[in-house]
Structure formats: C-alpha cells, structure tokens
Design a binder for these strands. Structure first.
Lengths: 336, 336
DNA sequence: TGTAAAATTGCAATCGATTGCAAATTAAAT
DNA sequence: ATTTAATTTGCAATCGATTGCAATTTTACA
C-alpha cells in the first residue's frame, strides 16, 4: 500500500493493463480472462480502491438515486417532521438500499418555481417518490410529469393518471364514523382542513352519517400538527363553541392535540367525547387514552411505493395500489 | 419552444455564443457582459433548461451532497425507524436544504465491509452526519476517518477525536434518577443495553444512587424498541422477577414498552412504579400516563450537527458540542 | 486615424469511467 | 509451419460542464 490508487487509471497502471481491461475486470465482464479479473479485483481490494460513483453515473447517464420528495404546501407546513411521513420514509430508505439505490431526501415547496421534472433534467435522480399530493392538488398536478418514473403517496383518482400508492380514504372515514355511531355517539365532527386527500375521508364520514340519517357538520379547519389542533380546540372550548360528542380526526397528531385540549378542560375522553384518529402512528397505542385510529400500514406502504417505482424504472406495467384500511379500536372511542 | 435544449452546448448554439460564454453567463460570471448574461439566462428559463447537476458536480469534483448515515448495529436494529432519530433527520434535511445541500439518507450496517470513507472515495458525499456511535464503539471507530468532514451524533469522549454533537448523557441519567429519589422511589433500575452512549446515562444513574447511598442494580438488557421492552418486561413480571419501584429507561420507546407491560399486569404507573424516559419524543406528552423524560432537543441538535459540518467543510475550527439536557416532569414519575 | 488599454468571447483540456471496434495474442487444426 | 478461429486486450470517443489562457472585439484617448 505504497501509493494511493485513486482512479481506475492508477489501478490499471499498477496492474499493468489498460484502463478498459481494469474497468471490465471490476465489472466482472466475461471478455476478460477469469484470472485477470480476480487479480485486478484483489488488487483493488488490497488498495482499498472504490470506483468513483460520480464519474461512473455520469458516464452511464444514470444516478442510481431515488429522490423522496416531501412537498410543503406552505412555509409553515412541517410535514417533513410528521411522524407518519417520517416512518414511511424510513421504510422506503431501507427498502431502496436493499435494491442498491441511494435515497435523496428532499423537502420541496409547492410554490417554488422548480418542478419535479427538474430532478430528472438535472440528473439528480432516476425516479421519484412523492409525498404531499394533499394540500393543493392543482398546483401539485403541474409538478407531476407523466414522462418520468414517479410514484405518489396518496389517494387515487380517475382524473390523475400518475401512479399512486395509498389507502382507501373514504372507507377509512366511513369505518371511523360508523364505529362512533355504533358506540352511541351522535354529534360527530370531522377535524382537519379539507385537502384532496382528507376530503375523501370526509366523504366517508358524510356517507356513514347520511346512511344513519344523522347530521353532517362542516369540517373543522385544523392543520396537520399537534399545536394547531390544540389551540383551535382550546379556542372553541373557551368560546363555548364545541358541541360535539365525537371527533373523526384527519390525523393522529390532530387527534392528540385535540384530546389534550379536551383533557385540560376536564372533558373526559371517551366518556364525554369520543375520538378516532387517522394513521395509527406507532405511539397511538400508548397515548392517554390510547387512541383508536384508522391504520395506514407504513411498512406495506413503503414497500409498495418502492416496488411500483422499481417496476416503472424497469418499464414494466404498473397500476396504482390501494392498500387495505382497517380500524384499530382502542380506548379513545369506546364507552366504558 | 421548438427544439428541446438539453445541454449547455444546445443552449450556446441557440444563443449564438460559445459554450464557455453560456456557462459563465449562467453562473453570473462578471467576465460576461451583463446584457449577454441576462439574455442567456432568460433563454434558459424560457426553454426550461437546467444544468446537469451530475456533470457539473463531476467536473467540479464535489457532490453538493451530505450523507446522513444511520448505522445499524445488527440486522435486527431498526434505528432508521426510531422516532427520535427520524425526527432529528427531518430537522437536518430541512436545514441542509436551506444551505443548498442535498441529503443522502443511508442506513449502514456496522458489520458491512464498506467503511464510511468510501462515501468520499466514491464521491457520493462532501460530508457525513452519522448516527449510531452507540452500540459498538470500537467497530464504529474503525469506520470513522479523521481526514474527512464528519460529524457524529452522540456522546463526547476524550479518546475519540472526531467532532460530536450530543447531550450530556451522564447528567441526563443523574437528573432522572435524582428526581425519582426525590419522589420517594428507592428500588430504581436502569433499563437499556449498555452501549457507549447509554453507559454514560447509566453512570449518571449510579452516581445519583451512590450519593444517596442507595443500591445500584445491573442494567436490564433491553434493546431500543417497543417490542423488546414490552416482552422483556412481561417475562420478568411473569417470572416474578421484577422488584423495582422506579425505572430509568434509556429511551422513550423502551419506557413506553415497559409501561404497557406494567399496565397489562395491573401495576399502575406511577403509583406502584415510576418511569422516566429518555429523548422526550414528541408524543411523550400524550402517552398514558404522560411520560417524564430527559429532553434531547432535536431541533437544536439537528441545527448544531449541520452547523458543525458546514464549518468543517469550510475548513473552520470546530469543537464538539454538548447540548443542554433537561428533565421534563410529567405524570409517569410523580406520586399523586 | 492609430495605438494602447479594457472588455468580451472562444478554444481546448479536464474530471473518471465505460464500451464499440479493431488489434494483438494465443490456441487449434491442417 | 501456416492458416483460421477463438480469446484477450487496448485505443479512442464519449458523457456535460467548467476554466486558464489566448484571441478577438470594443472603447478611450492622443
């Protein structure tokens, strides 16, 4: 290990062959005699030589990288720190690694002039996994580019023809609401700003109530984080504006924020007000009270996203995936 | 927008200048007349031309990328899905984006033959932020390479001379334990496999107990996830092996898993057993009972990691950072 | 108008690896 | 020993952008 072997050309020189032979040897190309191959591979290992990925990818016109893009709908949107999103990102990262891809983690502003196609134009990624269809579907739509391998987390739609992986939001909303009705709650409200995605949950909520001939309320405008949920609920309570005995929250974080406000106002959950969340984040089982929730399986979701993308990259036929949705009943929604 | 402008050379041709001029114009180089610059920039914008980042980075011999490496100590270790790690990763991603860096998210096996320096050899990253010093410090040490810009999350040490950002683990353990003693708990145990990092917490635990002349127990061998904590505790209870009235958990996930097992065995927290967790993950406030915990500020931590790394990249002097640690008292540790 | 100085632009090499094609070497067959 | 075939290796172009240096154009001024 006297001189540092930095480039393929160095390696070739030391091995006494040409660069092309060295390159082929490292790639186990059968053009090269087996003996030569092993010799060069061993030499590389000895000298701790690693191919320059930047140069290689540049030459091969690919990046070996998948960008996971989390779209912020506004500067205030912190979805990149949302536990649900992060946990699915964790699964994706692990899954892609096993397939030899690097993962580029990006948060991207929906208002920024750049569009998703730029990741391809700039040769920064071979494919994209995108979160954040939710908040502004039309702006989002402009970002998407059917030409390239892109898979989106979220709700399916006939109108959009990119590939999505998501859960059945309407069914989720329906399941949650039916459950509360069954438990005897009647004045049920949906908590969460309506976006493309949550609107489907709201539709499920409406359907359940209408089938049971109960009143549908307008959804509460609450954003996807603890704090906003907490404060909005606190305000409603202070102004005597809270007339509900059941809450279908658009996310677990919202549910938890609201429960805190309710608890602090001495309104007990689930005795006075029942709550069902959405996502079934990993701590839902441990909250006070433990949180009933609509399960979105991050593991299955992450795997499906990666699978679909790999197929797209492989030019195989792919269709959108609708993951099964299920209601996990815990304490926050069951009268004792 | 008749022909597609794909490369700088295309752009130059359309603009009627040479490649070098086009390049300089896009980079706002003052060698080029202002008029020419604007003309070319507008042309690029019109035609939606984006520089090929792969080619550019290759030429400039840098990657514009920071790798966030999460080291798995074993195949079973799922630290990439740990909420604490993920939330700090979220902060880092956002922070680096604001500084114009891409973030490569990698989980890396401590046993894998590749070492961290490979990320530089392969020109995959300009710098590294590493998690996972914890479990096998010696193996970890081999991975680290003082030549390159690397910042590690975790405990400081005189013996290691890479830059770290972390909290005062000993103090954290001390604070948690003192608090339980003050509340009148006496048979206190530390729950968590001892690693380089958790060992310091354990030392703090020992110190507090020794100062108060109480018995120090051996730590419980529990890994960093709910399930293991839950099962180990369940087993101890079933075998009548659990003789403690206080738990200092090495992480919140461990704490929550243990509390579940205790609850299911009708051992109430905090009446019978008090629990203090570690990390103060965002849901600690919402658990049943709400979880007292040693706060590790992910926001400050992420910012500090990024800051230190940027300084290293800039060849500035950097020292390790010790973040302040504080005890957040909630219900799980306070006798009513 | 002529000349020097200043401003602007272009040529060509470079980063490191891959690969089609041709050349050289070896083996096989007559 | 000679020709043919098979195997192995190397030359040189290529991917797209950047930049030192030289060449050209413009401007300023006598």
């Amino acid at each position: 290990m006297t001189i540092k072997i930095r480039t393929l050309s160095d390696l070739a020189k030391v091995a006494g062959v040409s660069e092309s032979t060295a390159s082929r040897a490292l790639n186990n190309n059968s053009l090269i005699a087996q003996k030569t191959r092993t010799k060069i591979q061993e030499l590389a290992a000895q000298h701790d030589f690693k191919i320059n990925a930047a140069a290689r990818n540049f030459r091969l016109q690919k990046t070996n990288t998948i960008a996971v893009v989390i779209i912020k709908s506004s500067e205030l949107d912190q979805s990149i720190t949302d536990p649900f999103v992060l946990s699915i990102v964790g699964v994706i990262a692990e899954e892609l690694r096993q397939h030899g891809y690097d993962v580029l983690l990006v948060s991207h502003n929906v208002n920024s002039p750049a569009c998703l196609a730029d990741y391809f134009n700039m040769k920064r990624a071979d494919g994209l996994i995108v979160f954040g269809q939710g908040d502004d579907i039309d702006k989002f739509d402009q970002l998407i580019d059917q030409q390239h391998p892109i898979v989106v987390w979220g709700a399916q739609s006939d109108k959009r023809d990119y590939i999505t992986v998501g859960t059945d939001n309407k069914k989720g909303g329906y399941l949650a609401t039916s459950h509360l009705l069954q438990q005897g709650y009647r004045r049920i409200v949906f908590a969460g700003v309506l976006s493309y995605e949550t609107n489907q949950r709201y539709q499920g909520y409406c359907q359940a109530l209408q089938e049971a001939r109960h009143t549908v309320s307008a959804p509460l405008d609450i954003h996807f984080n603890y704090d906003n949920a907490y404060h909005v609920t606190q305000n409603m309570l202070q102004q005597n504006n809270f007339h509900f005995d059941g809450i279908i929250a658009a996310s677990d974080t919202i549910a938890l924020g609201m429960i805190r406000a309710l608890n602090e106002a001495d309104i007990s959950v689930p005795e006075k007000v029942a709550v069902v969340g959405y996502d079934d984040i990993s701590v839902a089982a441990f909250t006070q009270p433990s949180l009933s929730s609509i399960r979105q399986d991050t593991f299955a979701g992450g795997k499906a996203l990666v699978n679909s993308l790999l197929k797209l990259l492989n030019n195989e036929e792919v269709t959108s995936t609708l993951l099964t949705t299920e209601l996990v009943i815990r304490h926050s929604s069951v009268r004792v």
